[in-house]
Every structure is written in structure tokens, then in C-alpha cells.
């Protein structure tokens, strides 16, 4: 097969990596309208949990993933109860300042606990290397990322569209007062939603570190990419984030292969064009 398929495959896999990193933000920012710039701090937490369990305690990679999810969820629910809930109705600038403060604290805390160096991380052998398929090298970990992203998308869409919980969340987001009037416990619901977002961030971080590495600056380095995915996809749309991540991933990889001179700006160019074309995002409702 011609190399274009290889590039396409890598692009989709890279896009899925972006998606896994940003889907949690798509939940908190997109559905709850909360500007959570500390999103990548939760991802970083998930990453450190996985690295610690693997390197210090010898856990297998897959066993660490649920723990990373739980760690992200617990951390975000604690912060939600302490801080975030007071700012749901505040303006977005205050949300920015609060969450940037949390990012700074998390960076310093990570540097204090783990030191400033890169955390070494070795995937299990069955996730390394690649499969040869009709002249293409398909990396196993990329296949795994694509599968994971697809699975998470399906679970999320089903949860948010077809379950009672999802209906309640959507009702609460659309009209808080009405939802309360109907007897929905909005406070608890938002707490759970936030935990879901934080948990997904933790899981995304755990899955991403094998590709992106992990050190304390993680909390800021990938924030821009995550914001790009969510805004191009459109607020409040999981499917939008999925499509946007795929588009950006493929564009980025194709750019690197075919026009390397432009590769450093391509992702930003694509973002600008997309946002100017559709200011509220691909599948944005607002």
C-alpha cells in the first residue's frame, strides 16, 4: 500500500491521543461551561500514578489504568467541593485565574515529590513494536490508542445520551433552576460530572505518557493542544471533540510527511481556518 495509508494511520492514532487527553475537558468545559485550565494537571496526576505503580510497585500497565482514572476523579471531586463549585456562576476570568493557580501549585508539588526529571516509562512488550500489514508498519500501541478512544467515545455517548444520568446532566446544564424544580439534585450531579471529567483526564494522561513523556511541566505543555481540540470540536459535543482530534491529528502528520517546512504551524493554521469557518465548533451547540 502507498505511504499515504501509513501517514493516515499515524495521523488517526495521534488524533486519538489528542482526543484521550482532551475528552475530559470536553465534559467539564463543554457540558458544564467551566473553564478548567487545570485539566492537564489531572492528566499529569494520572500519569504519575501509572508511573509510580509500574516502576515502584511493579504493577502491570493495564492494572494501573483504572487507578489513574480513580485518582483523577477523586482529586477533581475534592477540588470541586473545595473550590470549583463556588465558581459555576462566576465569570470565566475568575475560573481562569483559579484554575491557573491550581496548575502552578500542581507543577510545584510534582517537582517537589517526583523531582524535575523525565519519568522513565516502559510499555509492556506486547504493546511495543509494530504489525506488518500489506507493506505498512502499524504500531501496536497506536492500534491500542485507537481502540481505547473508540471505546471511551461509545461509552460516553451512550452514558450521556441514553441514560437517566445523562439526561439529568443535560437538563441541569440547559436550565439549572428548572432542573432543581424537577427534583434533580444538581449539586451532586455536577460533582459526579466533574469527577467524570477529572477521571477521564487521569486516564488520558496515563495513556499519553508513553508517547508524550512525563515531567512537572506536563500540566502546561499540552494545555494548548487540548484547548484547540475542544474548541474546534465544539462545546458540549463529545463527537465533535472526536472528529476535531482526528482532523487535527491527520493534518499534523500529513504536514510533517509532505510539507515539513510548514509542520510547526500547520496545526494552528488548521485551527484558525476551522474556527473562522465554524466559530462554535464542528458540532457545537452554542
Amino acid at each position: 500500500m502507498p505511504p499515504v495509508f501509513g501517514v493516515l494511520f499515524d495521523g488517526i492514532a495521534y488524533g486519538m491521543l489528542l482526543f484521550l487527553m482532551s475528552v475530559g475537558l470536553s465534559v467539564t468545559l463543554g457540558m458544564m461551561n467551566f473553564v478548567n485550565l487545570a485539566h492537564c494537571s489531572f492528566a499529569m496526576l494520572g500519569g504519575y500514578v501509572t508511573v509510580t505503580l509500574m516502576n515502584a510497585l511493579g504493577w502491570p500497565f493495564f492494572a494501573t489504568l483504572p487507578v489513574a482514572f480513580i485518582a483523577g476523579a477523586v482529586a477533581s471531586i475534592v477540588l470541586e467541593r473545595l473550590f470549583f463549585r463556588r465558581f459555576y456562576n462566576s465569570n470565566e476570568l475568575n475560573q481562569c485565574l483559579l484554575t491557573i493557580g491550581i496548575v502552578f501549585v500542581s507543577i510545584a508539588a510534582a517537582a517537589y515529590i517526583y523531582g524535575t526529571d523525565q519519568q522513565p516509562m516502559q510499555l509492556p512488550p506486547y504493546l511495543q513494536g509494530s504489525i506488518h500489514f500489506r507493506g505498512l508498519d502499524l504500531a501496536v500501541y497506536r492500534l491500542f490508542l485507537i481502540a481505547a478512544a473508540a471505546l471511551i467515545t461509545i461509552v460516553l455517548v451512550v452514558t450521556l445520551e441514553w441514560t437517566r444520568f445523562g439526561a439529568q446532566v443535560r437538563a441541569a446544564v440547559n436550565n439549572q433552576r428548572m432542573a432543581r424544580g424537577l427534583g434533580i439534585d444538581v449539586d451532586t450531579l455536577f460533582g459526579f460530572t466533574f469527577a467524570l471529567g477529572g477521571g477521564l483526564a487521569g486516564l488520558g494522561g496515563a495513556l499519553a505518557i508513553a508517547m508524550l513523556g512525563l515531567d512537572p511541566s506536563f500540566a502546561l505543555t499540552y494545555l494548548i493542544y487540548v484547548l484547540i481540540v475542544v474548541s474546534v470540536g465544539g462545546l458540549g459535543s463529545i463527537a465533535g471533540s472526536f472528529a476535531a482530534a482526528m482532523l487535527l491529528g491527520v493534518a499534523d502528520m500529513a504536514g510533517e510527511y509532505y510539507i515539513p517546512a510548514l509542520s510547526s504551524v500547520l496545526i494552528y493554521l488548521v485551527m484558525l481556518v476551522m474556527i473562522m469557518w465554524r466559530p462554535s465548533g464542528l458540532f457545537g451547540r452554542r
Binding site: 475568575n94 493557580g101 502552578f104 501549585v105 500542581s106 507543577i107 510545584a108
Partner: peptide, 20 residues
């Protein structure tokens, strides 16, 4: 010099909590 981020982060959180 290594962990000043922590204190500046706390400052931001404190300001936004108490002086919205």
C-alpha cells in the same frame, strides 16, 4: 527558586476565593 510556583499559585487561588 525551585518551588516558588507553589506560593504564587496559592496567591492566585486566595485572591480569586476572597476577592472575586
Amino acid at each position: 527558586p525551585q518551588y516558588w510556583y507553589f506560593w504564587i499559585g496559592l496567591l492566585l487561588i486566595a485572591v480569586v476565593m476572597f476577592l472575586p
